[in-house]
């Protein structure tokens, strides 16, 4: 099968949907003439023109609100944040407008919009450019939150997000844009809200999503070397969460480790852990463990990053702990 980059998969998803539906447009900082800060939208201005691929000033709150207004008035905007760290300037429009217009209007006005861009750390960028707000958005009823981990899922999920009638937060990573993966030429969609078991196993379940799937899969490889069979589940969507996929796996393996880049308090791992104890209490042979970023801002120096981010080593420690092999 054809192999393309993550960024190309995203570009294909947007371009295909823009060819299919004239209501879809892309707006954000540097998306047009600069061809995208991370070259996700490279060439799209040439194909679709300045009416549909629109550079904005550095006004996240303003262009997020323009996107919401366009969406409630019949268009289907894709709003790109250069990083979701900057979405905090715009979060009022995401949480108070996009997520609230349907209930406040009792269904008269919907908001079919996609807010997309990279999330999380991306090297030594310092504390303000290295944060994960997946759980913030996932906490808000009215939104859907998609966090793909590979080019194939990214394309299929982004196409579904653009066609979705509800507002979707779609979170990528600067560190994944150059990742390559098999993506078929023919069209496909991946439904929002379905996890995927990417590796079968019997001894322990590893649950992750987004960029941390690499840590989970590498840890599963490490575990295999030590004779531990890990099942790996990619949530792909963190609102709604496919709890059944996790619970069914835990019923088989009886042990669960969750790997997530966000801080631990009120995180996706917190919620998955709660739901598993709620729905599979009698199946658990060990407490649920998680590997999140440490409970501190991510600083610049490499030693400080190493000390804070989830990694294979910490994940292996957690795996061994739930298997009582320490």
């Amino acid at each position: 099968m054809r192999v393309i980059q993550f960024r190309e998969a995203l570009r294909e998803a947007m371009s295909e949907e823009m060819r299919r539906d004239p209501r879809v447009f892309l707006m954000g900082e540097e998306v047009a003439e600069y061809n995208g800060a991370y070259k996700v939208s490279q060439g799209m201005l040439d194909e679709f023109g300045p009416e549909r691929v629109i550079d904005t000033p550095i006004s996240e709150l303003g262009f997020a609100g323009i996107g919401v207004g366009a969406a409630i008035n019949g268009l289907r905007p894709i709003i790109e944040f250069m990083t979701f760290n900057f979405s905090l300037v715009a979060i009022d429009q995401v949480v108070n407008s996009a997520a609230k217009i349907l209930p406040m209007s009792a269904g008269q006005y919907g908001c079919p919009i996609v807010f997309r861009g990279p999330t999380g750390n991306a090297g030594q960028l310092g504390a303000q450019h290295s944060q994960n707000f997946e759980n913030w958005y996932a906490n808000t009823p009215g939104l859907k939150v998609v966090v793909p981990s590979n080019p194939y899922d990214a394309k299929g999920l982004l196409k579904s997000a653009i066609r979705d009638d509800d507002p979707v937060i779609f979170m990528e990573s600067e560190l994944m844009y150059s990742d390559k993966g098999e993506v078929p030429e023919s069209e496909y969609l991946i439904p929002i809200g379905q996890a995927k078991t990417v590796r079968e196993g019997t001894d322990v379940t590893l649950v992750s999503f987004g960029k941390m799937m690499k840590v989970a899969l590498n840890a599963a490889d490490e575990a295999a070397k030590e004779g531990i069979s890990a099942e790996v589940i990619d949530l792909r969507t963190v609102r709604p969460i496919d709890y059944a996929a996790v619970v069914n796996s835990v019923k088989k393996t009886n042990r669960l480790v969750i790997i997530e880049e966000a801080w631990p308090l009120a995180s996706i791992s917190t919620d998955v852990g709660f739901q598993v104890q709620r729905m599979a209490f009698d199946y658990l042979d060990a407490p649920v463990l998680r590997v999140n970023s440490m409970d501190v801002p991510l600083n610049y120096a490499p030693t400080l990053i190493e000390a804070v981010l989830p990694n294979v080593k910490r994940t292996m420690q957690a795996i061994k702990s739930v298997l009582y092999r320490n």
Partner: peptide, 11 residues
């Protein structure tokens, strides 16, 4: 206010 601009954008 930006929503109003966005409504106009769609028009």
């Amino acid at each position: 206010v930006p929503m109003g601009a966005g409504i106009a954008f769609a028009e």
